[in-house]
Deep mutational scan, measured.
Amino acid sequence: EPLWIRPDAPSRCTWQLGRPASESPHHHTAPAKSPKILPDILKKIGDTPMVRINKIGKKFGLKCELLAKCEFFNAGGSVKDRISLRMIEDAERDGTLKPGDTIIEPTSGNTGIGLALAAAVRGYRCIIVMPEKMSSEKVDVLRALGAEIVRTPTNARFDSPESHVGVAWRLKNEIPNSHILDQYRNASNPLAHYDTTADEILQQCDGKLDMLVASVGTGGTITGIARKLKEKCPGCRIIGVDPEGSILAEPEELNQTEQTTYEVEGIGYDFIPTVLDRTVVDKWFKSNDEEAFTFARMLIAQEGLLCGGSAGSTVAVAVKAAQELQEGQRCVVILPDSVRNYMTKFLSDRWMLQKGFLKEEDLTEKKPWWWHLRVQELGLSAPLTVLPTITCGHTIEILREKGFDQAPVVDEAGVILGMVTLGNMLSSLLAGKVQPSDQVGKVIYKQFKQIRLTDTLGRLSHILEMDHFALVVHEQIQYHSTGKSSQRQMVFGVVTAIDLLNFVAAQERDQK
C-alpha cells in the first residue's frame, strides 16, 4: 500500500453525458421521505430548503428570480454533511469501515464536522487534520463531537509532509485500522450531490432553472449537481466560483495573481482535486475576500440567511453572472454553511477592521482624538531585521541585547519573508524542534498583521487588541530589464502597544 495517494490523481470516472444510468458502476440512493420521529440526527441530513432572495437581486438590477439552496440546514450545519454520511455509508457497505475503526480526514473543517457527527452516532474514533487558518468555532464544535484535532501550517503546499493532507496520511500509516475516506478522491463525494442535492433542486424548481452558481473546494458539490442538471435540464448554465489565490478556475489566465492566501474558508485549493470535473462548468468567476464577507453580511442583514463567507462569494458572483438572465428565468445559488463557524471572524466588526474589510468610518461609535491620525505620526525608528541564514542562537542574543521581542526576517534585497519572535524561538528550542545552530528560517511564521503608514491609529489599535505587534510595510514598484514591473513589500518598522501608548501619553502631556 502506498504511503500516500495524491489528492489530485487523474480521475478514473467514466461518467458521460447521455450515458444510461443503468451502466453506472456505483451504488445510487434515492431521496427517502422522513418519518415524523427521526431514529437519529443523521436522518436530518439532506432535504434542505430552497429560499427566495428578495432584496439583493433587485438591489443589483437582476431581472431573474434568485433562489438560495440553504445547505446550513443540514444536521452539522453545512453541505459537507451529505458527503460525510455518504462516504461512511459506502465504506461500511463495501466492508472497508468496521466497528471500532478510526476515521482520519484532512479538511478545512466542515467535512470534519460532518464526519465527527456521523462518527459520534456510529461509534468510530475520528481524527481531523486541518490548517491553522480555520476558525476556532470549527475546532470547538469538533472537540465537542469527540474528534481529535491536529493543526497544520496554512501556507504548507498540499504535497508537503507538513500539509493537512501529508499529516493525515502519516497518521494513517501509524494508526492500525485507520482510514482516510479522502473527500478529494472519493466518488461518494460527487455521488452524494448527484443522487440527492441535484434531485432536490430539480424537484423544488419543478425542473425549471436557467443558471446554477456554486463555490468550489473539493469540487464534489458542483460536479455532482452539474452532471445531473446537464442530464435533466441541459439549458442550465453552470457557474463556478473560485477565490483569488486558488488555481481551480479555467482558463488558467484567471488564476494569475501574486496573491497566495485568502481568508474565506472551505473553497479554493492549490491543486485540482480528483473529484472535480471542470468540463461540466460553463464559466468560472474569481471572487475576493472583501466581496465575500460584504455579501455574507448582506445576506444575514437583508435576507435573514445566517450563512458563512463562501455563501457571500457565491452570491457576489451570482449578481454578476445572472445579469444575462431575463424576467421569468431563474438562478439558484448554493449557500454551503452557517455563520456559526465564523462568529469571531467576519461577523465581528473588530475582525473586519483588522483585516481591512471594514473602515473605521463605517462604525458610528465615538472615537478618541488620536483615532484618525496616521501611523506615520508615530515617528517610528528604523527596524531591526535579520536574514533567514542567521542562526536561532545568534538571533536570540541580538533580540535580548537590543531589547526586542520580535524581528522581521528579510532577504538580501529587503523583501519581507516573515517574522521571528523570542517566545516562538525559545519554545521551539525547548520542544526540540530546532537547535541553536539551525537557521532562523526554520522558525519563520507568517501569521502576523501588516499595516501601512497611511493607515489610521484606530486601525492599529484594533490590531493591537488581539496581537502583540504589527509590521509596518510599504510597497515598492521595481522595474526589470524586460520592461515588466513587480510590486514588493518592504519593512518600514515594527509597532507595539507600548509605542502607541507612549505616543498618546506624550501628545497629551505636551497639550497640557
Rank of each mutant, 00 (worst) to 15 (best):
K484L: 14
G328K: 08
G240D: 08
S381Q: 13
T391L: 08
L457K: 03
V415C: 11
Q354M: 12
S437T: 04
Y445L: 14
L276R: 01
F346A: 04
M490R: 15
S246D: 03
I498W: 08
F404Q: 04
G304Q: 02
L363I: 11
G268Q: 00
L347Q: 01
T257H: 05
E291D: 13
I390G: 15
S485I: 11
Y479S: 14
F503V: 14
N255E: 06
L422I: 14
E265Q: 05
V386I: 15
F346K: 04
F346D: 05
V434Q: 08
E244I: 08
L305W: 00
E252A: 14
G458E: 08
F285E: 08
E258D: 12
A506P: 10
V281M: 11
V332M: 13
M419Q: 11
L430G: 02
D270Q: 04
A382V: 15
S381M: 13
D349L: 13
L299S: 07
L305E: 01
D405Y: 08
T344R: 07
E465R: 10
Q478W: 14
M343D: 05
A506R: 09
K359I: 14
L453P: 12
K484E: 14
I272G: 05
Q259L: 14
Q302E: 06
K433H: 10
R374D: 02
K286A: 04
T456L: 13
D242M: 00
G309H: 01
K512H: 10
S485Y: 13
A470P: 08
R297W: 00
Q323T: 11
Y342T: 01
I334R: 02
Y479L: 14
N255D: 03
A407M: 03
N502W: 08
I396C: 11
V317M: 14
Y262G: 05
W371F: 12
D270G: 04
Q302C: 15
T364S: 14
L453Q: 11
M490P: 14
S461Y: 05
L363P: 15
L299Y: 02
W370P: 05
R278C: 02
H480K: 09
E475G: 11
T257K: 10
I334L: 08
F503S: 06
I398D: 09
S313N: 08
F448L: 14
T421K: 10
Y342E: 00
V241H: 00
N288H: 14
D282H: 02
E401Y: 13
S461L: 15
Q259F: 13
H480V: 09
V315Q: 08
L501R: 05
Q354P: 05
R330H: 14
S427W: 08
T395R: 05
E265F: 00
T456M: 14
Y269D: 01
P408W: 12
S348H: 11
T391M: 14
L429N: 14
V315I: 13
V443P: 09
Q256E: 15
F492C: 11
T395I: 09
E265N: 00
P251N: 05
Y479Q: 14
A497E: 03
T454I: 14
T314H: 11
L429P: 08
L254F: 04
L426Q: 07
S427C: 10
Q450M: 13
V319L: 14
A322F: 04
L358I: 01
L254G: 01
L453C: 13
T279W: 13
Q259K: 13
F404R: 02
D510R: 10
A311V: 06
A431F: 02
D277C: 07
L417H: 15
L276K: 04
Y262I: 01
M490E: 12
T279F: 10
L426M: 14
V420W: 00
F357K: 05
G423E: 15
S481A: 14
G379K: 10
L363N: 09
S461P: 11
A321W: 03
E365N: 01
Q489W: 11
L353H: 03
F492M: 14
A318F: 01
V415K: 03
D277N: 15
E263N: 07
Q323H: 13
G493N: 11
V410S: 11
I416W: 05
K355V: 05
H372E: 12
V317Q: 07
R452S: 08
V410N: 12
E265G: 01
D411C: 15
N341G: 03
K366D: 14
S313A: 12
D242C: 00
T314V: 13
F293G: 00
F295A: 02
V409K: 01
E303Y: 06
S486W: 08
R350E: 05
L254Q: 06
G414R: 14
R340G: 05
L248T: 05
K355W: 10
S313P: 10
L460F: 13
V410Q: 15
Q450Y: 03
T482Y: 13
S437K: 12
D405N: 04
V504E: 11
I334S: 01
W369A: 11
F293R: 00
S485D: 11
T456E: 10
I463C: 13
G432T: 06
E250G: 12
Y342C: 00
I451C: 01
K449T: 02
I451W: 04
Q476S: 07
V472N: 05
S485H: 02
D289K: 01
I444E: 09
Y445Q: 08
P383M: 08
L299R: 04
T391D: 03
N424V: 15
Q507T: 13
V491C: 15
G414T: 13
N424M: 13
V410G: 15
A431E: 10
E290S: 14
S246Q: 03
N424R: 11
G393D: 12
L380H: 08
S310C: 04
D362K: 14
Q326W: 08
E290Q: 14
T274I: 08
D242E: 06
Q511E: 13
G483T: 15
T314Y: 05
L380A: 12
K359T: 13
Q507K: 15
L358Y: 05
R400T: 03
I477G: 06
S348F: 04
V281Q: 06
V333E: 07
S246G: 03
G458W: 07
G393N: 07
T260I: 11
L471Y: 09
I247T: 15
D499R: 02
R488Y: 13
E327M: 02
C392L: 14
R297E: 01
L426H: 13
S428G: 12
S381I: 14
I300W: 00
I498Q: 02
A470D: 02
G304E: 01
L387V: 08
H468R: 14
T364M: 12
E290A: 07
M343W: 00
H474S: 10
E324H: 12
Q302M: 15
G441Q: 12
L457D: 00
P436C: 15
H372K: 04
K320G: 11
H372A: 11
L429G: 11
V420N: 00
D277T: 05
L363C: 13
A506C: 11
Y269A: 01
I477R: 12
A505C: 02
K484N: 13
G403V: 12
D337P: 04
W284G: 00
T395G: 11
G266F: 02
C307N: 06
A413F: 15
K283H: 03
C331P: 01
F503R: 11
S461F: 15
S287E: 09
D270M: 04
L378C: 05
A497R: 11
E290Y: 13
E412D: 14
T344E: 07
G493C: 14
H462C: 11
G312W: 03
H468C: 02
G414Q: 11
H480R: 12
T257V: 13
A506H: 09
T257I: 10
N341R: 02
S485F: 15
L347W: 00
G403T: 09
L335V: 15
Q447N: 15
E252P: 10
L453V: 15
T261H: 12
G304F: 01
L335F: 08
V333G: 02
Q354I: 03
W284N: 00
V410C: 12
I444T: 09
S313Q: 07
A296L: 02
G414K: 08
F271D: 00
K449F: 09
T395H: 09
D438Y: 15
A318N: 01
K446H: 14
S246E: 03
S486F: 14
L417W: 08
Q507W: 14
Q447T: 15
I247W: 06
F492T: 12
L457S: 01
V494Y: 02
G356V: 02
D289C: 00
V491L: 15
Q450D: 15
G393H: 10
F503G: 04
L380M: 14
Q478V: 06
V315N: 07
V472I: 02
V440R: 02
N288Y: 13
K449C: 12
